[in-house]
C-alpha cells in the first residue's frame, strides 16, 4: 500500500514538472504572437478585419489557457500564430492592392467622363433655345446633378487620401452611375 502511495506521489511530481517545463516557452510564444499581431494590426484592421479578429481570438485563447496553467495547450495555440499573422498580412496586402487598382481606375476615369458632361452643359448654357427633349428646368437639374457629383468626387478623393479606399470606391461607383445618367440625358453615349 505504501509503495502505491509513493508511485502516485512520483507520478504527480512528474506531471507537475512536465507542466512547469512548458510555462516559459508558452509565455515566450504568447509574447511573440502578440508582437506579430501588433505589427500587422494597422493594415489588417483596414483590409482583413475578419482574419485579424480570428487571430486575436486565437491569441486570447492561448492567454486564457496560460492563465489556467494549461501551459502545453497555451504553447501549442500561441506557436502557430506568428505564421498565421504573416498569412493575414499577405491577405491584407492583396486586398489593398485590389482596392487601390479599383480606385485608380475610378479616379482616372471620372474626370474624363465628367469633362465631356461639363463641356456639353457649358455649350447648352449658352444656347438661346434648347434642343428637343430638353428644357430649362431639365438643364438646371442636370447642372445640379453635375455639381453634386463633383462634390461627391472631392469627398471620394479625400477618403482615398485618408486611406479609406472602400469608402472612396463606393462613392466613385455612385458618381459613375450619376455621371452616366447625366451624360445619357445629354445625348452622350459610352464609346
Amino acid at each position: 500500500m505504501r509503495i502505491v502511495k509513493y508511485v502516485y506521489i512520483v507520478l504527480l511530481a512528474a506531471m507537475l514538472v512536465a507542466c512547469a517545463r512548458d510555462k516559459e516557452p508558452a509565455e515566450a510564444a504568447i509574447k511573440a504572437a502578440g508582437q506579430a499581431i501588433d505589427q500587422i494590426r494597422g493594415e489588417a484592421s483596414r483590409y482583413a478585419p475578419d482574419q485579424l479578429k480570428q487571430l486575436e481570438d486565437s491569441l486570447k485563447a492561448a492567454q486564457d489557457a496560460f492563465a489556467k496553467k494549461e501551459y502545453k495547450a497555451a504553447l501549442d495555440a500561441a506557436s502557430a500564430l506568428g505564421a498565421k499573422a504573416q498569412d493575414v498580412a499577405k491577405a491584407a496586402a492583396a486586398k489593398k492592392a485590389e482596392l487601390t487598382k479599383s480606385w485608380d481606375d475610378l479616379s482616372a476615369g471620372i474626370p474624363q467622363m465628367m469633362d465631356a458632361v461639363k463641356s456639353r452643359l457649358d455649350i447648352l448654357s449658352k444656347a438661346k433655345k434648347l434642343p428637343a427633349g430638353l428644357d430649362k428646368d431639365k438643364l438646371a437639374a442636370l447642372n445640379s446633378g453635375y455639381d453634386e457629383a463633383m462634390q461627391q468626387f472631392q469627398g471620394a478623393k479625400d477618403a482615398a487620401g485618408a486611406g479609406d479606399l472602400s469608402k472612396a470606391i463606393e462613392a466613385g461607383q455612385a458618381i459613375k452611375q450619376k455621371g452616366t445618367e447625366i451624360a445619357t440625358a445629354l445625348g452622350l453615349t459610352q464609346q
Binding site: 482616372a108 476615369g109 471620372i110 474624363q112 467622363m113 465631356a116 458632361v117 456639353r120 459613375k176 452611375q177 452616366t180 451624360a183 445625348g187 452622350l188 453615349t189 459610352q190 464609346q191
Partner: peptide, 10 residues
C-alpha cells in the same frame, strides 16, 4: 456600371 470605357461622346 457602364462597361469598360469612360469615354462619352456623340
Amino acid at each position: 456600371p457602364g462597361g469598360d470605357s469612360w469615354k462619352f461622346e456623340q
